[in-house]
């Protein structure tokens, strides 16, 4: 059990959608949010295929926190197309302290539920939401 975990659960729907993204590559990203009334993480939005990283960045609300997974596509040194799944925690400074706290404290538990996440990104403002940062992490 994670330290100071908040006891927030995970809706099964999250895992199913994530599996679809991982195996069937149906969507480039999924955005999750915490439903405080139900004490669990639920699916917020699913990206349509063909959407770019910019679309994804726009889909994240400005003054609120979210979790997201993003299927990052890149070409490696041998010129092969590859993808890596990123887990992104979006906690902008403009969000309420309480929301930031819940998201930060429940992240570990939620991430462990999603099997197959390779890399992680923490973002607290728009400048940290950058394809460049992902590229750096991949290599």
């Amino acid at each position: 059990m994670a330290n100071a975990s908040t006891g927030i659960g995970v809706n099964d729907c999250c895992k199913l959608r994530f599996l679809e993204l991982k195996v069937k590559k149906t969507a480039p990203y999924i955005i999750f949010k915490i439903d405080e009334a139900k004490h669990e993480v639920t699916v917020d939005q699913i990206g349509a295929s063909g959407e770019s990283f910019e679309d994804f960045a726009k889909a994240l609300p400005e003054g609120e926190c979210r979790y997201a997974v993003y299927d990052y596509e890149f070409t490696n040194a041998d010129n092969c197309k590859k993808t890596k799944i990123f887990f992104i925690s979006w906690c902008p400074c403009t969000a309420k302290v309480k929301a930031r706290m819940i998201y930060a404290a429940s992240k570990e538990r939620f991430r462990r539920e999603l099997d197959g996440i390779q890399l992680e990104l923490q973002a607290t403002d728009a400048s940290e939401l950058d394809v460049e940062l992902m590229r750096e992490k991949v290599y």
């Binding site: 100071a4 706290m101 930060a104 923490q122 607290t124």
Partner: peptide, 18 residues
Amino acid sequence: LFLAKNAVLTSFASGRAT
């Protein structure tokens, strides 16, 4: 009762787990 570490609480309050 619960004991929480100072650094952890500060970190969470700003929205970062790391």
